[in-house]
Design a protein around this nucleic acid. Structure first.
Length: 269
DNA sequence: AAGCGGGACAACCGCAGTCTA
DNA sequence: ATAGACTGCGGTTGTCCCGCT
């Protein structure tokens, strides 16, 4: 019954990844793509759990990742999306090109939360913080409003934001970005439309949907993906501990990468 | 210069839904 | 049909770094 365990718990390494492990994982994914994570550690020669490999790849090694702090625009978008989606970091991250759920979650907890509190805005409800009367504080959880974030919208299964009766009237076809007068937050009206066509959610992010599709297609690594890789690997150079040189494939083009991968694969046989 | 505290972020943990033998 | 693995997600923790005293 059932399947094989994802990894042998004994002998599985934990803790920070080394440059060598990163190199092995990157090489493997670039060669074989993201298929079955269970097999990755074994095939890539890593003493890691498949889950750990997936996490390392998606949060840190993916070539299309942006590095560095979130920009003002991104931050504003995160705030806006959080107001609508709550702590659904993966959904939020899906709307920010090159950002991971982990990164956004961390940034929220370390920066944005404090920023909002400073501005007098409750980071949970996104409403202005006001002193609650004692009797309201003691209300039972059952008397709470429709959701924990205090939003005026509910989220359908396809992640489309739906208006409900309590929501403020949404002006159709209004400009895509407006400002909430009370909070000063940026509001993206496109996001709230009932249009199920995802590409119309956030105009600026249309390319991300396409990029995501490209990414999900798995290998062979396309020229576009390779371009992204080359363009985004510069952050590795900023690393104190190791640079792209440590991975041994700096300045690679398609041909060189393939050559190395082929060599490595042959070496295994 | 040393110690301390807080910020930042990578990584782990555990849960829930899905998948498969 | 079902047990148990797989995957993805959100919450939490651990550790490093930096500024302040």
């Amino acid at each position: 019954m059932g399947r094989q365990p994802c990894c042998d718990k004994l002998g599985v390494k934990k803790g920070p990844w080394t440059a060598d492990e990163d190199k092995k994982l990157i090489n493997f994914i670039l060669t074989n793509g993201q298929c079955c994570w269970r097999a990755v550690p074994k095939l890539a020669g890593l003493r890691r759990c498949g889950k750990s490999c997936r996490l390392r790849w998606t949060n840190y090694l993916r070539p299309d990742l942006k590095r560095g702090l979130l920009t003002e625009t991104e931050e504003q978008l995160v705030i806006d999306l959080h107001a609508r989606l709550g702590n659904r970091w993966s959904k939020i991250a899906a709307r920010l090109p090159g950002r991971t759920d982990n990164e956004i979650k961390n940034h929220w907890n370390t920066h944005i939360k404090k920023k909002l509190i400073k501005m007098g805005i409750d980071p949970v409800t996104h409403q202005p913080i006001q002193k609650q009367p004692e009797n309201e504080k003691n209300q039972s959880p059952n008397t709470k409003t429709e959701n924990s974030t205090g939003n005026h919208h509910c989220i359908a299964e396809n992640d489309t934001i739906l208006d409900n009766s309590s929501s403020p009237p949404m002006t159709e076809n209004s400009s895509s970005i407006t400002t909430d007068e009370s909070s000063g937050l940026l509001l993206d009206n496109n996001f709230c439309s009932n249009n199920n066509n995802e590409s119309s959610f956030i105009t600026n992010n249309t390319f991300w949907i396409e990029e995501e599709a490209l990414w999900n297609n798995n290998p062979p690594i396309s020229n576009e993906a390779n371009f992204l890789w080359e363009e985004n690997c510069s952050w590795l150079l900023d690393c104190e501990d190791f640079g792209i040189h440590d991975f041994g494939f700096d300045c690679f083009n398609d041909f060189e990468l393939n050559a190395i991968n082929t060599t490595e694969m042959e070496g295994k046989h």
